[in-house]
Each structure stands twice: as C-alpha cells, then as structure tokens.
C-alpha cells in the first residue's frame, strides 16, 4: 500500500496519534472531558474547548449517524482525487451529538437524501492509517 498518493494525516501531538491509532483498529474515537463532561465537537484537542481542562478521554463512537447535508463532486477535485470523480462529500451527524465531515461510499449516488441513516466504513490506506468513511445503513441492520 506504499503507493498511496493522496494526502496523509498530519500528527502534531499525542492525542491526534491516539485518534489515528483508533482508526487503524477501525474504532471511531471522539473526545470527552472527564471534568466538565462535554463531548469535544471540534477536532482532536489537547485541552477541552469548553473548560480548558487537560483531562480528556477518548470514547468510542457507535459509528452510526445521519447525513445532514451532502454534495456530489463532479468536476475540478483537488489534486490527487481526479480518479475518484464523481464522489460524495457530506456532513454526518453522529449519534453522540457531534458532526463529522467525510465521504459517503458504497452508495447509489442518485438515491442519497438528507437524514439518511449511515454507518462508518473503513478505508485502509497505508500500513499505519485507515480513513473513516460512511455508507448508507442497510435495511434491517
């Protein structure tokens, strides 16, 4: 998998490494503050954005949520993504009360709708990294 040509995550501090290590194990992790109890809705942080405590823990998200909004990119993708066109970008509202930006894959693009139930699916891109993407939840699952 060494020929992966698209951008890779940038890791600048320990908590970010923990997040991506979780992805590698196919676990979608979100941060929660042990002091004030808030879910961190922002990207991975060293301090709680609500109370500035450094006492954060990762909890595992269910990986289930709903499509809040989406668009199908049909032209002019950023460098490295030319062969993916058309592909779907979306904002997903996770069950835990936070949002996530990702792609909707394994889907009938024309059948996508807002509020559609989706679940996380993992794309193993290198020996170290897996990307969380989402696909429509199959009926009855």
């Amino acid at each position: 998998m060494s020929e992966y040509q698209k951008p890779l995550p940038i890791i600048e501090f320990q908590a970010q490494k923990e997040f991506w290590d979780g992805c590698k194990k196919h676990q979608l992790l979100i941060q929660k503050c042990r002091d004030c109890g808030e879910i961190n809705r922002r990207s991975v942080r060293m301090l709680c954005p609500n109370c500035l405590s450094g006492n954060l823990e990762f909890i595992q998200a269910s990986g289930k949520g709903k499509i809040y909004s989406f668009s199908t990119i049909m032209a002019y993708p950023p460098q490295g993504f030319q062969d993916d066109v058309p592909y779907v970008v979306a904002i997903i509202d996770l069950e835990e009360g936070t949002r996530f930006r990702s792609n909707i894959v394994d889907c009938d693009i024309d059948a996508l709708k807002c509020d559609m139930d989706v679940e996380v699916v993992w794309e193993d891109i290198t020996d170290e990294y897996a990307l969380p993407k989402f696909r429509p939840l199959k009926q009855g699952s």
Partner: peptide, 11 residues
Amino acid sequence: GTFRARNFTAP
C-alpha cells in the same frame, strides 16, 4: 488542530 477534509472543494 482541524479535521482535514481534503477532497471537499469550494463548490
């Protein structure tokens, strides 16, 4: 410190 969304475009 931001989630990267590399294949999102301005449109």
